[in-house]
Design a protein around this nucleic acid. Sequence first.
DNA 1: CTTATCAGGTCAACGGTGTTGTCGTAAGGT
DNA 2: ACCTTACGACAACACCGTTGACCTGATAAG
Lengths: 239, 239
Amino acid sequence: MTDRVVPDAARQRRRPTKQGVVLSEELIVATALRLIEEHGADALSVRRLGRALGADPSSLYRYFRHTDDLMLAIADELIGRTLGVWRPTGDWVADLRELGLRMHAGALAHPRAAMLSAHRVTGRAHEIQAVESMLGVLRRAGFPDPEAVRIYHAFIDQSLAFGALDSACTALPRAAREAEAEVWRSTYGRLPAGTHPHIAATAPHLVAAMRTSSYPAALDLLLAAARTRLDHLRAGTAD
Amino acid sequence: MTDRVVPDAARQRRRPTKQGVVLSEELIVATALRLIEEHGADALSVRRLGRALGADPSSLYRYFRHTDDLMLAIADELIGRTLGVWRPTGDWVADLRELGLRMHAGALAHPRAAMLSAHRVTGRAHEIQAVESMLGVLRRAGFPDPEAVRIYHAFIDQSLAFGALDSACTALPRAAREAEAEVWRSTYGRLPAGTHPHIAATAPHLVAAMRTSSYPAALDLLLAAARTRLDHLRAGTAD
DNA sequence: CTTATCAGGTCAACGGTGTTGTCGTAAGGT
DNA sequence: ACCTTACGACAACACCGTTGACCTGATAAG
């Protein structure tokens, strides 16, 4: 079996499956996304996907060399969907905030794909478009080039890193997620002030806060620092 | 089988394994960490771990309810190793900076373990100690409780998220890492100013910057924003 | 219109995974 | 010296990704 995968364009002999479905790369990716959305991240397996498509699991290997290939195809589809229609408004802080939240939401909508692709550089069209957009926002705001790159770098990595982290949380089996909430409530919530004064003092806030993602807060902190930095630069206080 | 796990302290009948090894929670965790570092994250399975220990896989279920429990124990051990000897100096910005860099370095020292545990709450001794320390730094600095929790949350998640992201990069196969560097150099480095003015203008900075982790920069931005916030609070300017 | 080709769906199998119910045995307390 | 029982071993279950061999029917050539 040298290579049973055929480039999508060259396909012609599309034969229906035993259950009457005509497979295609597109259909497979769409079904995989649906599966993830409907039954949780770990509902995605080659066998289950095959079953959902009404095809033998091994058929999928005519379209993807292995599961990773499938994941990357899904990720690519994701980028397209989440950044497809964004346009800058001119308010650089609001623009970056919107972009950050969008990337984060896009990741959370498809946790598995996000976890696998957050640390990869594809060099493909959608990605290049995104880089150009963000750098544009920062440079038009008035950041000098080295500063724009520094902030872009921190901004994009923070978005991707939080996206992956929070995705990993939502990809946790239900039981584990509930167990974590319980740890915050019954372990951290009950530490005596004698031995752990700071945890005890902030326990209610902790229990409430740790349930949600801190990405919006982290994003706002980053943007606030960037704005301060820009003010300093404008005031002529060179570093 | 109600629950075959016995709390570690209560263990007494330590019986050697067929191959003469005396199991313990500690030994299991240490072996798991070694396994992960030596043979990669997916080298960690109950069966392989059993083999490495010279014990039947099912024996491990006398010490951990399921694989997840084991992961949490590994995560906590990691925290303990990286934060073991830290003491606050009184300069809260410097302290948090040091803590953040240490956690990041700790993650990179055990990339695969970091990737598996960054998003977990263990509720175990080392973790509790770490939470108490960081909250202490922020509260002594003068942050009111809700603010301290907010900043703690953003700070810890940022450290863990970047730790996991950068770990994932270093865990990439050598070929893939070089391919990514090449993408930056030859794809982003050569885009024409006509179609991609912002990338073209910053290309040298981009190529140079994207090779390194942006965590230190992101950390400094977060701390700068926190300091600004504290100044505002001190000035009595509520919000 | 017939025929041959081969893309692509199917089947069966391999070796891996986490997890559990059962059983035997040896360590510890009495 | 005896009992109890903790705890390691075994076997089995249901699932996973992946592959090589097989079969069949849609298409292209004649």
